[in-house]
């Protein structure tokens, strides 16, 4: 279909759309030089363009949340070593002074966290927390700020916003809290929004409301959205490009349609086979991914997933696989695997 000459192009990088956020070879290590260090993020790269939703998918411990904290400059300076490059609109963020970074956070880039109750200040009314952002970044004051805060709460679907301004976090339901958090994140119309498991703590009907809201924001205001989740269902509906993370590294990256149609990494395939689907015939035996992350081997010694992998062969515990363009499928895709699952590309295609 497309000329296969530029197969090294990363999926998700649409022609003509410059990335707003470019993360390259991000590496986050915890612990000091004297003690044992843990590498939480191990050379992760991805791009996000305006109006695009990029998913980071993986299970607990895969490094998806640490990646987002590193991008936002929210990791503690002591204890966490961040290397690599994070460019926002061409500007390197990792070398930015804490003051400059604080100016960007909330104004140009914002984040939504999983647990809205612990992300909101319990002793300050919601309204004050929203106007605070506006005062800090936009210099708005008094009535103007309150008016804008009312609008924002209304925008995210909080009923009776004028009254809600004086409510405290504990007076709101889980869904309302998450909406308030989104209102705060949107206060200054950020160009980049990072949502870290924004619906995991919510009920499924409330999740549907929040996802519809996020989707609307991306398509209407061209916000770039990084969606961090463990839920493949959420990814399937929301993300244009999906990065599957395992043990701190991207193991597969593709656009959402081909990724779900032909998963190539055994971990991606394993995740899909292990979850029951609401719309499938009953009676299927689930295929679990054997073992747990505790069985991993270090990436330096081979593929971290090898001990759990049904496809593992001789090379897996001897040679570390690299993230390279995948020639086994028709779509542009990056894959880190020696023995991938069957692709959709035949000999004639190649």
């Amino acid at each position: 279909m497309t000329t296969a000459t530029t197969s090294t192009t990363q999926p998700g990088r649409r022609s003509g759309r410059e990335p707003l956020l470019a993360v390259e070879d991000l590496r986050v290590t915890f612990g000091s030089r004297t003690s044992r260090t843990v590498t939480a993020v191990d050379g992760v790269s991805f791009d996000v363009a305006p109006g695009e939703t990029v998913g980071l998918v993986g299970e607990s411990g895969c490094g998806k949340s640490v990646t987002s904290l590193a991008v936002m400059g929210l990791l503690p300076a002591r204890g966490a070593q961040v290397a690599g490059s994070v460019r926002f609109d061409g500007e390197e963020l990792l070398t930015l002074s804490p003051q400059r970074m604080a100016e960007k956070r909330g104004a140009e880039m914002a984040m939504i966290f999983q647990d809205p109750l612990s992300s909101l200040n319990p002793v300050v009314p919601i309204g004050v927390q929203v106007t605070e952002v506006l005062e800090r970044h936009r210099g708005m004051k008094g009535g103007a700020a309150r008016k804008r805060a009312t609008y924002l709460l209304e925008r995210v679907g909080i009923p009776d916003p004028t009254r809600r301004l004086s409510d405290y976090a504990h007076q709101l339901s889980g869904g309302m809290r998450q909406r308030a958090l989104i209102a705060m994140a949107l206060a200054c119309e950020p160009r980049l929004l990072i949502a870290d498991e924004p619906t995991t703590a919510l009920d499924v009907t409330i999740q549907a409301q929040i996802l519809a809201l996020l989707n609307e924001l991306v398509s209407e205001s061209g916000t770039a959205l990084v969606m961090i989740t463990h839920d493949l269902g959420v990814v399937a509906g929301l993300c244009s490009t999906v990065n599957v993370l395992y043990a701190g590294r991207v193991v597969e990256r593709a656009d959402r349609h081909p990724l779900f149609a032909t998963p190539r990494h055994p971990y991606t395939g394993g995740l899909l086979a292990s979850i029951p689907r609401l719309d499938e015939e009953r009676g299927r035996r689930l295929v679990p991914v054997p073992g747990s992350v505790a069985d991993n081997i270090p990436w330096e010694e081979g593929c971290a997933f090898a001990p759990r992998c049904p496809n593992a062969g001789d090379r897996c515990e001897a040679e570390t696989p690299a993230l390279v363009p995948d020639r086994g499928v028709r779509d542009p895709r990056l894959l880190r695997c020696h023995y991938p699952l069957a692709g959709d590309r035949t000999e004639e295609d190649a």
Partner: peptide
Amino acid sequence: PSPPEADEDVPPVHGG
């Protein structure tokens, strides 16, 4: 609501 590029069934054109 579908994401903005949902109508692109074909793989995106890259590079040139």
